[in-house]
Amino acid sequence: MTTLPSVLGTGLIAAGVGFLAVAAIGFWRLPDLLSRLHVLTKADTAGLSLVALGAACLTGTPASILPLGLCVLLTAISGATVGHLVARSVTPRGGRS
């Protein structure tokens, strides 16, 4: 159980879950929509990719690494796109300078 991949995997997962927890706290504490969007995109990219990387270390089979990688890609690009669009829709002049 205490092999290097399992220790590394658990550590990475703990870091990712930490990101998610901090994001959850920040989502409640931060004062306005734009700073909350900032929180959302960090959780989507850093948090989830660390969790998936850790899970990939723990399982280590190609059949599980592919879906985990796709999960990370899809969530990261979803968060970035939605964050950008929501931010643009609330800024004056639609974000166009």
Partner: peptide, 17 residues
């Protein structure tokens, strides 16, 4: 809506775990 989005990310992480 972005709260729902954040909950979606959390759910994906929970499912992976």
């Amino acid at each position: 809506i972005i709260a729902a989005q954040l909950a979606g990310t959390g759910t994906v992480a929970t499912l992976i775990l």
